[in-house]
Nucleic acid binder design. Structure first.
Lengths: 196, 196, 196, 196
DNA sequence: GATGAATGAGCCTTCATTCAT
DNA sequence: GATGAATGAAGGCTCATTCAT
C-alpha cells in the first residue's frame, strides 16, 4: 500500500527543492509537481509539510550515520577508522549532493529546536558526533591521537569536512578531498613522536 | 529621517527572533512587538520582511569583516595575524551570540541564491574567506605555513571556528577557544622543521 | 478547469456589488460571501481584485457589443438599424441592470487608463462607438441622415441612451424608451426634406 | 485661520489627482505632496479623505449650478436661455477640465449613495437637471419646444453635453461645441411649424 | 498652525490542508 | 488510492489618521 516507491519519489523531489530554497519558499504544490503526483497524495505519505521536510533530512542523516558506524567497524587502526569515516561522509555527499546544503542548514539551527522534529534531529546529529568522538578517544588511549576535548574535536572534524565539501569543486575527487581533510586534521591530533 | 536608533532597535529585535526560529516562523508582528514599535514602523525602515532579514545578516557580517581586516593589519607575523583573526571571530560571536546561528544558516544556503540579497551575502562571505586566505598565502611565502589550497584551507579554518563556537559551552572562555582552534589548525599547516 | 459555472457565479455576485459600491468599498470577502464560495476560490478564477473587476466590465461590454453588431446586421434601412441598436442597448441594460452604473462609471474614466485593463476597456468602448458611427455614415451616404461629425454624433447617441436609462423609471417600458431616444435623436439628424 | 488659500490649494491638487485615478488609488500622501503641505495639514481642513473628495466634487457642482442659474436669468427667450446654459456647462469644463471626469464618474454612481455625501451630491445633481427642465417647460408653454418628459429630456441634454465634452477634442472650440449640442438637441424638441 | 514619524486596524493574497469524486 | 478544486486561517503589507514636536 502507498507504494514505498511513491514515497521515495516524493522524498527525492522534496530534497531537490528544499536544497535550493527556504522552507517557506518551497510549496507543497511544487513538491507534488516535481514528484509528479497530486497534492493530496503527499498527505497520504506525510502528515504535513514539516514532517515531509524532516523526513527528508532524517532519511539522509540516518543513512549517513549507518554508513559511519559501519566504516568505524570495518577497521581497527584508529587512523584507518577515521579515514573510513571521513570517506563515508565525503562519498555520501558526492552521491547525494542534494542533502548537503539541507543538512548544513539544519545543522546551523540544531539545538534551537522546540519542535519534536528538531529535537529528534539534534539527537541524530549528536549520535554522529559521538561516533567520531569514540574513535578519537580510542585512538587517544592507543596513544595515536592527542585528544583533550573529544566531542569538540569531533565537531571540528565535522566542520572541516563541511568546509571542504562546501568549497567550490576545484576538480578534486573524493579521495583527494579525504586526503586533504585527514591530513589537515591528523597532523594536529597525531602524536608527533618525531618532535623531541 | 526615521531615527537610526529606531532602526537599530528593530534590527536587534529581529536578530534575536531570526536566530531562534525559521524565517517563516518569525512574524512581522513578533518583530514589532519585540522591538516595541508598531507593525507599520517596520516598513518605514525596511521595504519588506526579506530586506529586514538580510539587513540583519549584512549588518553582522559587515561588522565582522571590518574587524577581521583590522586584526590582520595589526600584526605582521603570520601566526599572530591568524590568532588575531580567529580571536576577532570568536570574540565577535561571544559578544553577538544572536548572529551566530543566523549566519551559519545563511552560510549553508550561500551560492544557492537567485535573489539579489543572497548574491550580496555570498559576496561578503567570499570577502571574508579571501581575507583569511591572504594571510595564509603570506605565511606560506614566509615559509611559516604549508599551504596548497589557500581558499579551501581558509574555508577549513572558518569551519573549525564555527564548530568550536557551535560546541556547547563547556565553560570555555574566548581565549581558550582561540587556543584550541589555532592549535588544531596550526599544527597542520605549521612547517615542522624539527621533524627530520 | 475550475468549472466555468463557478466563474460565472462569482462574476454575477461581483457585478451586483461593484454596481452599488466603490471599488475599494467592495471587499473580496463580500464577493466571496455573495458568490457563496471561499475567499481563496476567487483567486483560482481571477488573479486579483482588479482583474475580477475588469472581467465583470469586459464581460458586459463584450456581450453588449456583440448584440450591437448583430442588430446592425439584421436590418438594411439605416433608421431601422439605429432603432435596432438602441433597442439592443436599452434591452441589454433592462436585462442586466447591474452593469449599467458599472459601465457608466468606467466610461467616465475611460482614456485615463494607464493600466492594461483600462486601455483594453477603452478599446472596447471605441469599438462600440465605431459600430454606431458606421451606421450613421451609411445613413448619411444614403441621404437619410445629416452627419457632420460621425464619431461625436455616435457618442451623443450613446450619451442620450445613458441619460434615458439613468432617468428614474417613470414606468416606461423598453420600447417607449427606445422611441423617446430615437425620436429625440432622429429629428435632429434626419434630413427634413420637407423643410424648404 | 487655516488660510482659505491653503484650502483651495489642497482642493485643486486633490481634483487633479482624483480626476486621474480611482478614489483608492489616490493617497492622502499624494494629495499632500501635490499640494505642497504636510499630510497632517490636510486634516485641519477636511475631517477625512471622503470629505475632501466630496468637497472637491461639491465645489465644482456648486459653482457650475450657480453659473447655470445665472445664465437662465440673463435671457428670456427659451432658446437663448438654453444656449446660455449649455454654454455655461461647456465653458465651465473648458476652464475646469479636471472636474469633468470626476463629476461624470460621480454622476454614474448617483443615487447609489447611502452615505450622506452621496445623497447630498444627488441633490445637487437634481437641482441642475431641474434648472434645465424648468427652461424646457417654460419653452413648451411658450410653444417653442415640444416637451413630453421634461426631466428626462433635461437629462438627455445633460447626456449630450457630456458626450460632446468627452469626445476627443477635434479642434473644436467652446462655441462650436455649443452649436453642435444645441442644434442636435433643438431640432428634436423644436416645434417644426415650418413642416406642413 | 504645520509637520511627518508612528500607529494599528483592515484588507488582499497565499498556501497548507481537506474531501468529494 | 489518487486527484485537484475548494477552503479559510493566517500573515504581509498598506495607508488613513493621530499627535508629539
Amino acid at each position: 500500500m502507498k507504494s514505498p516507491d511513491r514515497r521515495a519519489q516524493i522524498l527525492a523531489a522534496a530534497a531537490r527543492l528544499f536544497e535550493q530554497r527556504r522552507f517557506d519558499e518551497v510549496l507543497m504544490e511544487d513538491i507534488a509537481k516535481a514528484a509528479r503526483v497530486a497534492k493530496g497524495t503527499l498527505y497520504s505519505h506525510f502528515s504535513d509539510k514539516e514532517e515531509l521536510y524532516f523526513d527528508v533530512v532524517f532519511g539522509a542523516i540516518c543513512r549517513l550515520n549507518a554508513q559511519l558506524v559501519q566504516e568505524a567497524a570495518e577497521a581497527t587502526d584508529p587512523a584507518d577508522q577515521l579515514r573510513g569515516m571521513i570517506h563515508a561522509i565525503v562519498a555520501f555527499f558526492a552521491d547525494n549532493r542534494v542533502f548537503f546544503r539541507l543538512m548544513a542548514a539544519e545543522d546551523a539551527r540544531s539545538a534551537t529546536g522546540r519542535s519534536d522534529h528538531r529535537r529528534r534531529w539534534t539527537r541524530q546529529r549528536h549520535e554522529q558526533t559521538h561516533a567520531i568522538a569514540e574513535v578519537l578517544e580510542a585512538g587517544a588511549e592507543a596513544g595515536v591521537f592527542r585528544i583533550r576535548h573529544a566531542n569538540m574535536q569531533a565537531e571540528i572534524l565535522r566542520g572541516m569536512v563541511r568546509s571542504v565539501l562546501m568549497s567550490p569543486a576545484e576538480g578534486l575527487g573524493v579521495d583527494e578531498r579525504v586526503d586533504i581533510i585527514l591530513k589537515s586534521f591528523l597532523e594536529g591530533v597525531h602524536n608527533p613522536s618525531t618532535s623531541p
